[in-house]
Structure formats: structure tokens, C-alpha cells
């Protein structure tokens, strides 16, 4: 474990806490893409299939459980909780996210570290996470003004994988045989997808103005 990865995991956890705060405090999921939340639930379920078979550390197991439980809780809130469900705007959240699931799984069948059930689902979760934010970014562009908590949620979610890139550089430089091409390349693509969001987020922070993504 290095400082970049710990900072990355904490930033990821923070993004989830900010989203939970937004939904709990405002009893609304306006501006939040249910589809992105569903994709993240699939990402965690597919990636942590080894939750009960491979014990790496208490921290690792604890965080896996937190990520799985929180992502399922958020999807449950948006789908079932009467107050929150009413605020979900399905006419804005129209990205065909099942195409992302299909494409990621197909890619995992061809590009993986080992042709085993666990490794194919692990690669699938890595590819899917790289594109999971797309429905959310499309929704933000459509919904015009973005409330602060939703903007912060997306910012921290994008920043966490950026910190992981620093972690991979650090591990590459310090560990003799460290190579994680699937995670690295996918992580760079994932972070790059946030580039324009980061730009507009920085502008809104600099001008102390409302975050607005151009349509």
C-alpha cells in the first residue's frame, strides 16, 4: 500500500459518502444517473467475486464490502425509496448502458490476464468501470445546472482513479515485476473521460460560479 493508493481509496470512499449525503439530505436523486449507479454495482460485484475466497487484508475486505453495500444501497434508494424514486428523471437518463456492459464483457473475453472465470469477470469490471461514468456525464450535460453535491461526487469519483495512476507509476518504479496493463490503460481512459468535466469544474471553482456543462 502506498500513499497514492490510500488517497485514491479514501477519495473513492468520499465520493460515495458525498452521494449518500446528497440523497439522504435532499431526499432526491435529481442530477444523479441511476444507470451509472447500476453500472458501478455491477463493477463491484464482478470485481470482488473473490471476496470470500482470497483474503488479502482486513482493510481490503472491509472496503470491498463497503463498496458493494453502498452501491447496492444507492441503486435501491433510486429504484425503490418512494421519495427518492419520484425525483429520478428517466427522460434525462437515457444512455443505453447495457451496450457498455455487453462491450466490456466482450472485450474481457478477448483481453484478460488469464482465461478463468474470476479473471474474465475482473477484466470485465475494469473495462466497465472505465465507461461507467458516461451516463452520468451525459445526464449532467442535459440537466444544465448541477447541484454542488452531485458535482463534488463526480469530481471525487474522477479524481480517485487519477490517484490510482500515480499509484501504478509509483509501483512500477519501486516493484521489480509490477505490470498491470489492463488496469493501467483502462484507468487512463477512465480518467481522460473526466477531462472536460474537470475543466468546467475548475472554471466554476475559480469563478465561484455554478457548475455548468455545455450542452
Amino acid at each position: 500500500m502506498n500513499i497514492f493508493r490510500l488517497a485514491g481509496d479514501m477519495t473513492h470512499l468520499l465520493s460515495i459518502l458525498v452521494l449518500l449525503l446528497k440523497i439522504y439530505a435532499t431526499k432526491s436523486c435529481s442530477g444523479v444517473s441511476r444507470k451509472t449507479q447500476e453500472l458501478y454495482a455491477i463493477v463491484f460485484l464482478a470485481r470482488y467475486l473473490d471476496l470470500f475466497t482470497d483474503f488479502i487484508s482486513v482493510y481490503n475486505t472491509f472496503m470491498k464490502i463497503v463498496f458493494i453495500a453502498s452501491s447496492l444501497a444507492i441503486v435501491w434508494c433510486i429504484r425503490v425509496h418512494p421519495m427518492v424514486k419520484r425525483s429520478y428523471d428517466k427522460d434525462l437518463d437515457t444512455f443505453r448502458h447495457y451496450l457498455l456492459v455487453a462491450a466490456s464483457f466482450l472485450l474481457a473475453l478477448f483481453l484478460h490476464e488469464k482465461f478463468t472465470f474470476l479473471e474474465i469477470f475482473w477484466a470485465f469490471s475494469i473495462y466497465l468501470e472505465a465507461v461507467a461514468i458516461l451516463p452520468q456525464l451525459v445526464l449532467l450535460q442535459r440537466s444544465g445546472n448541477v447541484d454542488n453535491l452531485t458535482g463534488q461526487y463526480v469530481f471525487f469519483l474522477g479524481a480517485y482513479r487519477g490517484l490510482y495512476i500515480l499509484n501504478w507509476i509509483y509501483r512500477y518504479l519501486t516493484e521489480p515485476r509490477f505490470t498491470r496493463w489492463i488496469a493501467c490503460v483502462s484507468g487512463v481512459v477512465q480518467t481522460a473521460l473526466y477531462a472536460d468535466f474537470f475543466y468546467y469544474y475548475f472554471i466554476s471553482w475559480k469563478n465561484n460560479s455554478k457548475l455548468k456543462l455545455p450542452a
Binding site: 481509496d9 470485481r47 488469464k114 474470476l118 475482473w122 490510482y164
Partner: peptide, 10 residues
């Protein structure tokens, strides 16, 4: 796990 190496990252 790949050649004995766990996916030790989240």
C-alpha cells in the same frame, strides 16, 4: 489471482 499474484488493489 494471476500466477499466484492476487489482485491486491480495490
Amino acid at each position: 489471482t494471476v500466477d499466484g499474484k492476487y489482485h491486491d488493489e480495490l
